[in-house]
Write a protein that binds this DNA or RNA. Sequence first.
DNA 1: CGCAGCCTTGACCATTATCAACGCTGGTGG
DNA 2: CCACCAGCGTTGATAATGGTCAAGGCTGCG
Lengths: 247, 247
Amino acid sequence: MPQATVLKFPDPGPCPGAVESGPCANCGARSLSVCARVTNDTLRSLNDLTEVVTLKTGETLVREGDAAGQVYNITSGSVRVYKLMADGRRQIIGFLFPGDFLGLGSGDEYAFSAEALEPVTSCRFSRRAYLDLANQHPDLEGALLERSTTELAAAQDHMLLLGRKTAMERVSSFLIDLSRRNARRGDDPAIVRLPMTRGEAADFLGLTLETVSRTLSALKNRRVIRQSASDAYEILDADALGVLCGD
Amino acid sequence: MPQATVLKFPDPGPCPGAVESGPCANCGARSLSVCARVTNDTLRSLNDLTEVVTLKTGETLVREGDAAGQVYNITSGSVRVYKLMADGRRQIIGFLFPGDFLGLGSGDEYAFSAEALEPVTSCRFSRRAYLDLANQHPDLEGALLERSTTELAAAQDHMLLLGRKTAMERVSSFLIDLSRRNARRGDDPAIVRLPMTRGEAADFLGLTLETVSRTLSALKNRRVIRQSASDAYEILDADALGVLCGD
DNA sequence: CGCAGCCTTGACCATTATCAACGCTGGTGG
DNA sequence: CCACCAGCGTTGATAATGGTCAAGGCTGCG
């Protein structure tokens, strides 16, 4: 089983939620995730209980059923979060990118597993300590609730996708979603990177890898997207994609 | 458009979360939903901002896109929560039964609509006031977070169902889920009531109404379930159902 | 250079959707 | 009071979307 490399967090380093692209433009703290609501004072407290964790491709962050003791904030790379059925069928619940949290909304045990899709760096801290800290900092508590609300809304959108959308609508929605997440992080929304395999995209979209491949090919043939790197597509016609996604 | 009947809450009446079956066995408060964690003092404060709302079949509790000003706690009846696509395709996000909350984990706007599946009574209170109160009562805040965690876990289970399960596995999982919810409310887990139409069950399970009907017939023919009323089934072989549900 | 892993494409198949007919039930109005 | 009708449920026949199986190509790494 792969083991994570653990480095002690340098003091005074970036706060949880910091990303490689640097400090947040709004609050000056090096955090994309919580800056809008959380004071620098709170951020300093968070710093004290953080350690940096780096993982290689395929290494495990959390395992379904394990005690939910830790929270991660991704600072670089990407992560797959998934559930397995007894016979090996896999549903990927979501992909995490820099700025995203893992494990905040868990009960006593993680209800999912999470693995690095590519080399990952993350800030890890105790979930208990984080929740205690949130109790003392209403601004952090608010950010936490807002975060879980966003996550739930995304889950509901994904239920609509899985339950009612066609293959073309699913793939189009996926590209739009990735593009929007780029925009939120300050990356180019026209260039969508797909760090996951076709099989992983399929397990996220409720399809097979062949159907994902065929559908991407169809979008290429229609000149809606263009392959701009081995793992990236350029969106040529965002309007068409918006129509194809169904909503 | 149907209009809800609004009655002023009688003082000192049941707290939000109360159900018709009476007070909670643990804390004495008439609440199924928050009793495990919330003090009677907090409950009294909640009482003050509550009004009772009754709805007839088909009436609307909240509409997707409306300002998320109110929270509901269902005390009797059942509710469908759903999202629509532009062309009318519907994904039902979940069904609510007595003790369930609606609208707690919302942003500025509701991301879904909700309608009464049958006559409903509920306690309604201001979301803002509720969140403010939660800020002052750590026990309530904790209950709130726990609730949103549970909801998220349920959403993730449902994603697995929608993305990866067969029709038989979906219907079996659905029956098991309803049975478990019965047990949690103190009802008989062997008798599952289906207050929704086949079409509504289908829109929840990502199937068509015909497939739901056929699958229930197959379960009847296999003597796994038995129709015990026009809208209820008895689970004859819970073990078989457990195998059929896939996990 | 060769191999492993991933991607693409084709041919065929199966699960589930669609279309259709008909039965049941409960509510309404003659 | 009974007949009719609307809405729901069941079942059958057929169709289509996406899955399965298979072959071959590309890329990167040892």
